[in-house]
Design a protein around this nucleic acid. Structure first.
Length: 99
DNA sequence: ATTATGACCGAAG
DNA sequence: GCTTCGGCCATAA
């Protein structure tokens, strides 16, 4: 089980309409501070079917990076019911998925 | 082993 | 509200 797979197994459980921060993922894997590494791992993987990588956002409420640009990412989130204004998520806490 | 890179984070100006 | 900076960690070269 490598780092990438750990992340996949974790985030593929995130339900529609919910999101998680890179930092949260890192902590859930008992590796606090590895937020950056998480994003790096997601960047390499692009299995859109199995992995909903668009549900992973930054701690400040901004969508963050994405293979197809941040714009597409926020669109997908909106489509799932997440309200976003000025590029930031409204009522951030409300959408956070806790592990 | 050393260096560089990136979908990050938090604090500081 | 914004930009900068230092620190963080897994990968690739």
């Amino acid at each position: 089980m490598n780092f990438r797979d750990e992340i996949f197994n974790l985030i593929k459980k995130i339900p529609v309409g919910k999101v998680a921060t890179y930092g949260a993922i890192a902590r859930a894997l008992s590796k606090p501070g590895a937020a950056r590494a998480v994003g790096n791992a997601l960047n390499k993987n692009r299995d859109f079917v199995k992995i909903p990588c668009h549900r992973i956002v930054r701690s400040d409420g901004i969508a963050g990076g994405y293979v197809l640009r941040e714009k597409k990412k926020t669109e997908k989130l909106r489509r799932e019911g997440v309200r976003i204004e000025k590029g930031k998520i409204v009522d951030f806490e409300k959408y956070i998925y806790k592990f």
